[in-house]
Amino acid sequence: MNTPLPEYPDALPEAEALFEELLRQLKPRVSHAAGMVGIVTGGAWLAERLHAALGLRAPLGVLDASFYRDDFVEKGIKPHTSPSQVPFEVQGREILLVDDILYTGRTVRAAMNELFDYGRPARIDLVVLADRGGRELPIEPVYCGGKVNVPKGAILMLERDPSNAFSLRFSAARRERKAQA
């Protein structure tokens, strides 16, 4: 297969600027009683910082959602799943579901299915740091740090340094794709 390599942008947006924008949107609108759940791994990192900055009362939840993915039959379970933990009552609560980068929407779909197995939330608002487009499901964020232009198939990841500062970068898989081409 000789598909042409996608064009990569020269510069990705500053993740910290996206984070500030996200916080600016959330602060006036979020109730302290809302529950927050981050999707591993990047979404959970983002949720940790948002949760602290917003001063939410309920402890932070984490979802892995591996057991709900629709690509299980093709890919199997990813190694080293981490246990999901939702340490508050989901039933009747407003939930902020947090992920780092929104792409096809399939991870969010899996996470929502898992969340419903804990109870019936009053509402779920989707919070993402960056939206790269390319949706395959009717899922849109309510709070979004900003849009990024990324070629289809490229793997964009959130990284966090030892001081918890965020940055966006392409994964090593990009080099493999180049080598194959």
Partner: peptide
């Protein structure tokens, strides 16, 4: 298995795998 152990604390203990 560790991830599956954590299911026992939930309302619905099943996953759709």
């Amino acid at each position: 298995a560790r991830s599956f152990v954590s299911l026992s604390g939930r309302e619905v203990k099943k996953v759709p795998l």
